[in-house]
Design a protein around this nucleic acid. Structure first.
Lengths: 340, 340
DNA sequence: TAATACAATGAGATCGATCTCATTTATCAG
DNA sequence: CTGATAAATGAGATCGATCTCATTGTATTA
């Protein structure tokens, strides 16, 4: 409520002096400074950031757009971003796009109007994105998260999805699995899902195994589940599946168990993301762990560097294979020692 | 970059007219309006929200503070808030307090400086909160979420924790459970945990059963788990436990299963919150579902009403008991028909 | 055509903090 | 004690949009 001018008046000095008392106290005589502080105290003065932002042409705000907060991958990344941003004196404006291009557009436009100092985005497809196209013409620093760098022209923070997925596949192969499939959620088109599928294909080929087509579980409907179940039976039955994300892996695992399958006995299930909850399940989820917190922190620090005008070409962050009880030795071999 | 003044110049009109072309087009002659729009187009004019905010003394921003985004309850609530806020033309500044009073204080101060139009907070203890005490003196509308209304003096959005917890307890009792315990996470002191324990005690007493002291699982350490395991054995062994939140229930369930217990065979486990993931687990989590999305939406709408100056005394939102496979008939009765 | 009403536009102040530049006051050396 | 250098302070402009009030312009009617 009370503004600097009132404080200045009460203290008997000019606005300039009052302002200095706060921003550069050493330029003000101690006695004067005290008078100003006292006046500020009495009036419960609280500096108006909006005015500061207008004047300084910098908002100390970062615009964040994630697809959804219902997926813990994004929530966990955001948690880390918030801490890092706050530590640096920045605030986050958080938005969700639901992967909708039109929402993406509206959101970014809105944030640019708000004059955020920088943007951290996760889009559906970085290579073919209207928003990014538009942003290329703007001077506002922009950083992608989770999206592969590709040829979008924007720096990107995340893991090497292809390599990570190949690692996951190799892990299963090492355990003796040969009939390995990959299951994707509704966002088949997402650039990450694509890369993860590539990595899977690569690792399969490398081992002389045949990669199967991506199974799509659009929604967790019964129909989709049946299709998958079918793939789990017969001579060509899968012994392991990799899901393109943990949420999918967890619900798939639940459905399978509910349908009478044993995980990993009948089928090993791997996830991708490394959400915290996966560790506590039983069977615990074997997955590729993306360093979500690290990704969030790095995103903030990189963006701040960009805001300072530094050139940034961040390297992919390291992923890790998190062992878990949801993956085991394939049944065919196991069957010699124990039969269900 | 380009401001209204440049647009006005290029269009050959005054700032006032240019401004009017956007805010009240009908006050401007169509021909003039076109000139302004063309100029704006050419210069890639984008209205500066910061200036509008300063001028209008309203930011159309809502400050949100949650304890953590690592817990899906808050993330899911936030997801709904974001959608509702955006639909109303508001943006969210999102922060996390980690339940730390000092962080709570800093965050709120920061948001007040930012001149947010209102605040939506979830604090550790609403009844004994320094931040709320300070906020009572401010004119900025403030709303609590999840915190029981108590005597904080602020309107609050959430379910009736005591009633919900009693319902959970009665559900178990109805199934035949008698030796029911309650387990809390690290935040014993949280006002919600307290109310949930009260509800449990009430329902137990009502049925003539003895309520046990709250078991604290500070962290998911082995030590804590052993304490709990002990409670599950011997003549006074529990047949069911209610956890004060889903995250805790899920990890407890996992640990129990890993230790060789069967859920719900040996022990029924109930959660509290209703996070989405619980539905997809196996066994699926039986829990009290707080309408997280509804809570988020209602919080935004209520706050907007408060910002408009309306008096608000929101009623508690309805909770629901979500059936789940993690709860079953107590073993003692079951043992007649089948023995492990 | 003159007079009145109303539409369209412009000049200038305002929101709150801060920066530049000019001015005043204090301090030190000679 | 005075001139000179430094320290402290103030006046006013600025950031960008918008509101009030005054003024110019058009239209309607007697």
């Amino acid at each position: 409520m009370a503004d600097l001018l009132s404080v200045a008046k009460l203290a008997g000095v000019s606005r300039a002096t009052a302002a200095r008392a706060f921003s550069s106290p050493d330029l003000v005589r101690p006695a004067t400074r005290e008078k100003v502080f006292n006046a500020a105290q009495q009036l419960a003065f609280r500096p108006n950031k909006v005015a500061q932002q207008l004047r300084s042409q910098a908002t100390q705000m970062i615009g964040v757009m994630v697809p959804s907060l219902d997926n813990p991958v994004f929530a966990e990344q955001l948690q880390a971003m918030e801490v890092a941003a706050r530590a640096a004196g920045y605030s986050l404006i958080v938005t969700t796009s639901d992967y909708s291009p039109s929402r993406e557009g509206d959101i970014v436009e809105e944030m640019l109007r708000q004059r955020v100092d920088g943007l951290v985005l996760t889009v559906a497809e970085a290579d073919n994105s209207a928003v990014l196209e538009k942003l290329r013409l703007e001077k506002t620093p922009c950083l992608l998260v989770y999206n592969p760098p590709g040829n979008s022209g924007f720096p990107s923070i995340g893991v090497d999805n292809r390599a990570a997925s190949a690692d996951a596949t190799r892990h299963l192969i090492t355990l003796g699995h040969q009939r390995i499939g990959m299951v994707a959620g509704p966002l088949l088109q997402s650039d990450r899902a694509q890369q993860r599928f590539d990595g899977y294909c690569h690792a399969m080929g490398e081992a002389g195994l045949i990669a199967r087509p991506l199974v799509e579980m659009a929604r967790h409907t019964q129909a989709d589940l049946k299709i998958l179940m079918t793939a789990l039976q017969g001579p060509e039955a899968l012994s392991a599946v990799i899901c393109t994300n943990d949420l999918l892996a967890i619900s798939l695992m639940g459905e399978l168990q509910r349908a009478g399958f044993n995980v990993p006995g009948d089928l090993s299930v791997m996830g991708f993301d490394g959400i915290a909850l996966g560790k506590h399940l039983y069977p615990s989820l074997c997955t590729i762990e993306q360093p979500r917190a690290d990704i969030g922190r790095t995103a903030v620090h990189t963006l701040l560097a960009m805001i300072r005008g530094e050139e940034c070409t961040p390297a992919p962050l390291p992923h890790a294979l998190r062992q878990g009880e949801s993956v085991g030795i394939p049944t065919s071999r196991k069957s010699t020692s124990s039969t269900s």
